[in-house]
Design a protein around this nucleic acid. Structure first.
Lengths: 186, 186
DNA sequence: CGCGTTATTGATTAGGCTCAATAAGGGTGG
DNA sequence: CCACCCTTATTGAGCCTAATCAATAACGCG
């Protein structure tokens, strides 16, 4: 599957039912390459907002990979970039405080949106506070307070469940966001 | 590089210098496939204990990949398994309490050692409390207390900086460890 | 033997969680 | 078009897990 338009997240649950969001996908992102190689699905995908996905036939894709080494290499590179992002999430959840953790998440999403050609600051990020909580290992209530705090510092605006980042550079500064882990340069 | 014998971990630092350990490698694990495809290294490798590594020439490996589709596929599969483990670490750090978090980490390492043919419970895990802290997003002091608590429940033994797991099944039970994310079945 | 790393323990603090209650939308059915 | 309901967001009070600060012990190595 490829996400054509909208937002999707990947998540896993603890046995106690607590959700951890593991990745947020934006327009253009491939969603589940692992199904080509692993028999068992590890985690679930949920829609953040209404979205459009394109299905690619597995067999066709496998033939394409076999026929074109460049495609295979592009997929491996994409997987490695994803893995780098997963690791940054572990760092984010493990070693940053709540404010920086939320800011860092938003920096990542905003930066990846920008890389896909979306205009900032016009493009809103449609994450609910509940979703941000599960992506950062916090509670929704604490996310609410931190968003208010970031908002009162002018680092973001919230409007009807949408988040706007008026000055991405300032937000990156506060989160000490270093985009190199995204490996955006083609 | 391939880790022939010993223990190595992969880590990243926040700009404030806090370390987050992102993976623990045991004998037999490949360490840095990403260097084949990404120009920029994301994180560092550190030795947990004295160890032996084997260097594989990049060019040779690239030729092997080009010549043998099976090798390429095996590498992709290994990368996908790694990625699944990274995601489980995010879940662990984000959504489990300190005791379960530490137990889960030890369950993973013990299970992977066992899968490599090491005998449990004889094989010790040589992580320092500082390293466990940085792998779980806790402080070393709190790790110490939790280890003592786990130890007094008979779930593990500590001896001279080594950790022994006398009853892996019991530890897995308490951490609700579900090994499927390791994708061990070949 | 001396020193640096690692482990231990106690006291205190604080960041974030829980519980509780209310508000504000937005969508749906009548 | 309106009433209702469900999801999402807000706010306050009190609590608790894990952090911080501080000091000492125990190794293990050179």
């Amino acid at each position: 599957m490829v996400l054509v338009e909208g937002f999707v997240h990947r998540f896993r649950l603890t046995d106690e039912g607590h959700r951890q969001i593991l990745a947020i996908y934006v327009s253009g992102d491939p969603l589940d390459f692992e199904h080509l190689y692993l028999p068992l699905a590890d985690d679930g995908l949920q829609v953040v907002r209404d979205c459009t996905v394109a299905y690619v036939d597995q067999k066709d894709l496998q033939e394409l990979i076999a026929a074109r080494p460049g495609v295979a290499q592009a997929i491996v590179t994409a997987l490695l970039v994803d893995a780098s992002i997963f690791r940054e999430w572990t760092l984010n959840v493990g070693r940053r405080d709540a404010r920086a953790r939320i800011a860092h998440l938003l920096c990542e999403v905003a930066t990846r949106l920008q890389a896909q050609g979306f205009e900032l600051p016009a493009t809103p990020i449609p994450l609910t506070q509940d979703q941000i909580a599960d992506a950062t290992g916090l509670t929704a209530i604490h996310v609410n307070r931190m968003l208010k705090s970031l908002s009162s510092d002018g680092l973001l605006q919230t409007r009807r469940g949408l988040i706007l980042v008026p000055d991405l550079e300032a937000l990156c500064e506060m989160a000490s966001f270093d985009e190199r882990y995204l490996h955006l340069q083609p």
